[in-house]
Design a protein around this nucleic acid. Structure first.
Lengths: 205, 205
DNA sequence: AGCAAACCATAACAGCGTTATGTATAGTAT
DNA sequence: ATACTATACATAACGCTGTTATGGTTTGCT
């Protein structure tokens, strides 16, 4: 006999509902357990097994949701005529997203990595690679600049800062180090110093 | 009635024994629980409460042990006449230590930060600050270089790389990015490019 | 209409961190 | 030496966790 308040939904709706609720509880800093997750939703603990194959699968789904949202945030940025500025803007949006959702950011990176996580992270990185390629086309970076290398190094800076501030010992203001660090990196890749400083400052602000 | 195989040790010995065993299990990638930790040691689960006030306190102690070991590794480096080379050597030792003890490194940074953790992390950072100061005295960096700022930025690079490789999506080879990244950073602080490249390469190797 | 598969509520299980209780030990004052 | 007190900790129980088993309900296909 099902309970009166029973909810009967199609597959994807239940999936989304549980992921959404997990993200919510993460933001509210409520401890997440199988039972606390489904309490008040009308779905039973078994739903988590039907849709995610256990709590680990749920975390994996949340991780991917985090990357999806990050991608959405980065997609909202429209390229300008200054690709170096765009690179800085991507970095700015990246750390701002981490700062806005610190617990989600932690979940995204605190687990052993599997193939699906790799693909999600790769999609994020790809945006940086594209921006570097545009900058190279515009002659801002040296010809021997490897776009994937420079993009990865930009990511390392963004993640290092995000990780040490939102979930670590550095104070929030340390996020500002992104400006001199990205500037130093882009200048080393061949960009003209004064112009680079302007571009990064604009993209960051 | 105590069991026959009962062990009776002084306070610090039990503390060290449990921390050491936790570090061991971490390295062996065995799941650590209160019961699995004390199994075979002759001490009861209550000892963890006597000495650490629960499992969270145990993790905190492990975290501090991690920072202590890291400090010991960095202390083993003797300064040369080239402080920029020394900075690179510190970075190299930092990521090598993370690579050698990936699980311990994760524990060190995966928890909410409290004051004692802060102090331990600060001691690590201090070594970098000193090296930057020596480089400034030698005229390698611009006069307006703030040692704490540059040291922190070096740390961000080291942690970003360590975090994304030992517990994240980047392959081990990505650790090599430290060389161009540190070089770019030090050049931006005023070091002469060719000399800087040599110093970093020597410090890293 | 009948059948097979999916769905999932309920309940039981082992393991977790923690708390409670009482006994043995260590140290100190008498 | 004796009595007292605080510490150390073995044992057991408690409420929680994720997981598995079971069986009834619902759905969709034939």
């Amino acid at each position: 006999m099902y309970s009166i308040a029973m909810v009967r939904l199609k597959d994807p709706a239940v999936r989304s509902l549980l992921i959404e609720r997990a993200a919510q509880m993460l933001r509210a800093r409520e401890p997440i357990s199988l039972r606390s997750l489904v309490d008040g939703t009308g779905v039973s603990t078994m739903a988590v097994y039907t849709y995610f194959d256990g709590i680990d699968g749920l975390w994996k789904a949340v991780r991917q949701e985090g990357f999806t949202r990050l991608s959405a945030v980065l997609d909202r940025l429209t390229p300008t005529t200054d690709p170096v500025r765009d690179l800085a803007a991507l970095g700015s949006a990246y750390v701002a997203n981490a700062e806005a959702n610190p617990d989600l950011y932690r979940v995204m990176f605190d687990a052993a990595v599997d193939l699906e996580d790799l693909a999600a992270a790769d999609a994020t990185l790809h945006r940086l690679v594209e921006a570097v390629e545009r900058a190279k086309t515009d002659g801002r970076f040296a010809d021997d600049t490897e776009p994937l290398d420079l993009a990865t190094q930009s990511w390392v800076i963004g993640h290092g800062l995000a990780s040490l501030t939102v979930a670590g010992p550095l104070p929030r203001e340390a996020l500002g180090y992104a400006v001199p660090m990205l500037t130093a990196l882009f200048i080393s890749a061949g960009d003209e110093p004064a112009r680079c400083r302007r571009s990064v400052a604009r993209g960051w602000g």
